[in-house]
Design a binder for these strands. Structure first.
Length: 202
DNA sequence: CGACCGATTGACT
DNA sequence: GTCAATCGGTCGG
């Protein structure tokens, strides 16, 4: 990871495109979260696209208080609470009034691994190969490790707290598959992952 | 209002 | 492989 790339947030134009296009392009990008506790960063290795005319999407039945951020301009973070205990984070895509987003399902940890360990497992846990992978190999695990909660819902990804960067890394091979954990819309192959990456879920 | 259920995870057979 | 945890969002009456 080269610092000069890492410092530059992806421009608004990157996000103002179709969700499926942005989803593929997000693979390999680095996501940063800078808080008072310190800075954490990871490479995005697995994503899923969700659109307005997609029955699996929160935006399918129209704009509500919960999914409002999905209809904002591209480049904002949509965070939702689910199963009574977990958060999931999405990158909002497209123009304003278009309810599209890309779910971040897994990242490869790069910076602030100690911080992530603490947020996922607590103080006494020691680093091993197993829990290094368990750190961020799922959408709610990623949010927990990165300290992303409902407070981060609506955060501008071109700001100073949360942003994405391109360090020049390009995936050798991208895998397409059916999205996970949904009942409708399984026929759409809108889950994208970096082939062979250890942090890809399942 | 009440009932159902989820873009998940971790523990367990 | 199965299943409970746990609660806000959404929808039906």
């Amino acid at each position: 990871m080269k610092e000069e790339f890492a410092l530059t947030p992806l421009p608004r134009s990157f996000y103002r495109r179709a969700a499926v296009t942005v989803a593929k392009d997000l693979l390999g990008k680095i996501i940063f979260h800078h808080t008072r506790q310190g800075i954490v960063a990871g490479r995005i290795v697995e994503v899923e696209a969700y659109t307005m005319n997609d029955p699996a999407s929160h935006s399918f039945r129209g704009r509500t208080q919960r999914n409002d951020v999905m209809f904002w301009d591209g480049g904002y973070l949509y965070v939702y609470f689910t199963y009574g205990m977990h958060f999931c984070a999405n990158v909002v895509t497209g123009e304003p009034e278009v309810g599209e987003a890309v779910l971040i399902r897994a990242v490869e940890p790069l910076l602030g691994i100690e911080r992530m360990m603490y947020q996922r497992f607590g103080k006494e846990e020691t680093l091993s190969r197993s829990n290094l992978i368990q750190l961020t190999n799922g959408p709610a695990k990623f949010c927990e490790a990165f300290g992303i909660t409902k407070k981060e819902n609506g955060t501008d990804l071109l700001g100073q707290k949360l942003w994405l960067s391109d360090d020049g890394f390009r995936p050798a091979s991208i895998r397409k598959s059916s999205r996970i954990g949904i009942r409708v819309g399984k026929e759409k192959l809108w889950r994208f992952s970096i082939e062979g990456n250890l942090w890809v879920s399942r």
